[in-house]
């Protein structure tokens, strides 16, 4: 190659300089890692499975309230909420029968049943209801993995929301979510990712999550996460059968039902899972039986990938430094030949 060493060093220095210049947007790297702290005004949901009677009012309200502009199910030109037929032959589309979370269903109440299913909230020969939806992680994996920043965490109330206009549809969020929450509109040619966004559009107007508003028993209540955690701890401290005023719709509400406490398993699901979530759950039987995985790490997942990303710029630096040094050594002889 007809190129002098001095010239070459110049070129490498130039390339390196351009690289550093182009790397300027990487300067705020230090702040890039997602926060592991609960946002100051974080809101969420406490779902107490022992209070749930399986009426599915939450599901119905969720679908209706999110099918409006700003809602998590909104689609231009669609007036009625997207009902699912659920493979039921008799279902002519006038009632909603989802089997799973889907591109049309953001929360779902399911039934656990064992043996003769006689007693509620008992693992053997018992039954229980449970609810699946986005748990709104404090450090959400979906937010950290999205290459176009289509998933965001509200800096105030901490709701994890979605910006369809940014999404490219790579579905990394689906892979990354430890709870298997985000769903895709597989039957659409221009699909969106769908998941609960904690009724962010209602919260903006001072409202609460639609499911909590619809729940008649107080199984689903809305409120500040710190208050919900306190409420959950109080319930865990109750003796089975002890009478307790269960608030309705929101934590600390003036409306309540008086009833005896169930036998709770000693776990608040969402306190530690994936570094903590804003939606938390209580149950009478183990969460594993309800399909909630117990092998979810109790730390923020984005740190796993950040450990890699934080090394990226060093690789460039290292390759250009050692590459230039090596080039100098391996091409020394040729230069001398050229000079002589």
């Amino acid at each position: 190659m007809a190129i002098s060493r001095r010239k070459f060093v110049k070129i490498v220095a130039g390339t390196g300089g351009a690289l550093v210049a182009s790397g300027t947007p990487l300067a705020p790297l230090a702040q890039a890692q997602l926060s592991t702290e609960l946002p100051p005004q974080a809101t969420g949901i406490l779902y107490d499975a022992t209070l749930c009677v399986g009426c599915k009012a939450c599901m119905s309200k969720c679908k209706a309230e999110n099918n409006v502009p700003g809602g998590a199910l909104y689609k231009k030109g669609r007036s009625t909420p997207p009902y699912e037929k659920g493979n039921l032959e008799a279902n002519n589309g006038i009632w909603d029968a989802p089997r799973e979370l889907s591109g049309d269903t953001l929360n779902i109440v399911k039934l656990y049943k064992n043996g003769s299913a006689e007693v509620k909230d008992r693992a053997v020969n018992g039954y229980a209801f449970f609810k699946q939806q986005c748990l709104h992680c404090i450090s959400p994996a979906c937010v950290s993995v999205c290459p176009a920043g289509a998933f965001r965490k509200d800096p105030e109330n901490g709701a994890v929301y979605y910006l369809a206009e940014r999404c490219i549809g790579c579905r990394y969020c689906q892979l990354a979510c430890p709870f298997g929450v985000p769903r895709y509109e597989w039957d659409s040619a221009w699909p969106e990712v769908r998941k609960c966004q904690l009724c962010r559009h209602r919260q903006e107007k001072g409202g609460i999550a639609a499911c909590a508003e619809a729940c008649p028993t107080g199984a689903t209540i809305f409120g500040k996460v710190v208050d919900l955690r306190e409420e959950a701890k109080r319930r865990l401290a109750l003796r089975p059968g002890e009478e307790y005023r269960y608030p309705i719709q929101v934590v600390g509400s003036k409306d309540w039902t008086l009833r005896g406490a169930a036998h709770y398993v000693a776990q608040i699901y969402g306190l530690k899972e994936a570094g903590g979530t804003q939606n938390i759950m209580l149950s009478g039987i183990s969460f594993e039986l309800l399909g909630f995985k117990n092998n979810i790490p109790n730390y923020d997942l984005p740190r796993l990938t950040w450990a890699y990303i934080s090394k990226v710029l060093w690789v460039f630096f290292w390759v250009f430094a050692t590459g230039t040094a090596t080039y100098q050594i391996t091409h020394r002889k040729k230069d001398k030949e050229g000079q002589s």
């Binding site: 997602l34 290459p147 176009a148 940014r166 999404c167 490219i168 549809g169 699909p191 990303i309």
Partner: peptide, 19 residues
């Protein structure tokens, strides 16, 4: 799923993402 906007990551940087 949205092939026509696959260029988004190139302008909408999200440096926490391996993708």
């Amino acid at each position: 799923g949205r092939s026509l906007v696959i260029w988004h990551p190139l302008v909408m940087w999200q440096i926490n993402s391996i993708m």
